[in-house]
Write a protein that binds this DNA or RNA. Structure first.
Length: 316
RNA sequence: GGCCGGGUAGCUCAGUUGGUAGAGCAGAGGACUGAAAAUCCUUGUGUCGGCGGUUCAAAUCCGUCUUCGGCCA
């Protein structure tokens, strides 16, 4: 599943950046220019039927350039970083795949997962996951936190972070390991990092421009039928479905459940989107290997020269 | 014009029998290895509408002015 090596002509370019930065457009231009393909690495655009609110590519765009891993996960399935890796490597086996691959998305966690690999542990059973989740809701964080700290006194997880406590307990009970042990095992022998040559580029716009983009795009989503996109999903009882907790979808669910007046919807979505952008920026700060462009065409061109070099070099 | 409420952090509001203020949200910063567009952490000095007064001490009591609601003329 994880290839140990790959032919040298198989090159990858990550195109990242915050929401509403124009990275998808840029990626499409590049894919056309270099006759490559687009691969999704946005955590919401994986899902079937989440088209408008996730700003997924249009049908026309998909016809013009090969797009992969978009809108294919049906509800109530939920995507995970690990599942994404499996799907990605399965995609690489396709004979008709046109390289270079432009892997596009703003989900830093997934980019990291693909680039560095993930801790090598099997999937935890649904039963155990459910059991731990139930315990935490029933007995509260403290009991779970105490179990964790007793087992792993070094744990840095905050007592309020029920999600991470739960995950750490899953690892403890299923494999008897601490998160730190997983990490050091992983660092000693990481077979799962990305073996193909790759380059990372991104779009970083200033806040004022992003706010304008977000405002325009939120308006567009709502008039394109975002509410109508969510309604049938709610009718199927999917209000707990993870992607419906995401920016834009969450607010529409609130509205449809009469927890928010319609006149607030637009502003609330804009606000959440700006908060998301802020978190994405914070994530990207940890990675100083991304070549950043802004709204200036000049820098974009300079980066494209680097892409030329990267694609032409035949190292190894 | 009269009566009753309100005017406290950018917003919505708490402030017990007077001891110079605090929550949520927003904003700012950060963490992050299988939900990640999620989850979590850190961060609150503001003429307590103005001016007088009572008091050792007033957002809190009194007077007055101002302003926004509502009701009655």
């Amino acid at each position: 599943m994880y290839p140990e090596f790959a032919p040298r002509h198989q090159k990858i370019i990550f195109v990242t950046g915050s929401t509403a930065s124009g990275k998808s457009q840029w990626a499409i231009e590049l894919a056309k220019k270099y006759n490559g393909s687009i691969v999704n690495i946005d955590s919401i655009q994986f899902y079937e039927k989440l088209i408008i609110g996730s700003a997924a590519p249009t049908e026309i765009e998909k016809i013009q350039t090969p797009h992969y891993l978009y809108n294919y996960v049906p509800a109530p399935n939920e995507m995970t970083a690990g599942e994404f890796l499996r799907d990605f490597y399965k995609l690489l086996e396709r004979k008709d795949l046109q390289f270079p691959l432009f892997v596009v998305g703003g989900t830093g966690f997934y980019i990291q997962a693909l680039e560095k690999g993930m801790y090598n542990i099997p999937e935890v059973s649904q039963e155990l996951k459910q059991q731990i989740e139930n315990e935490i809701t029933k007995f509260g964080n403290e009991k779970a936190y105490n179990e964790l700290i007793e087992f792993d006194p070094e744990s840095k997880i905050h007592i309020n972070d029920a999600y991470r406590i739960g995950r750490a307990l899953e690892i403890k009970r299923a494999f008897g390991k601490t998160m730190f042990q997983l990490k050091s095992d992983f660092e000693k022998n990481n077979k799962f990092n990305l073996k193909l040559p790759y380059l990372k580029i991104g779009k970083l716009l200033n806040k004022e421009i992003l706010f304008k983009n977000v405002t325009a795009r939120t308006h567009k989503m709502l008039s394109a039928g975002l509410i109508q996109e969510v309604e049938p999903l709610l009718n199927q009882g999917l209000h707990q479905w993870a992607p419906l907790q995401s920016v834009g979808y969450f607010e529409v669910v609130q509205y449809l459940q009469n927890k928010m007046p319609k006149e607030n919807l637009n502003a609330e979505i804009i606000q959440s989107t700006m908060q998301l952008i802020k978190k994405q920026k914070t994530w990207f700060k940890r990675d100083d290997t991304i070549l950043w462009s802004d709204e200036s065409v000049l820098i974009e061109k300079q980066i494209e020269q680097k892409i030329d070099l990267f694609l032409n070099e035949s190292k190894i």
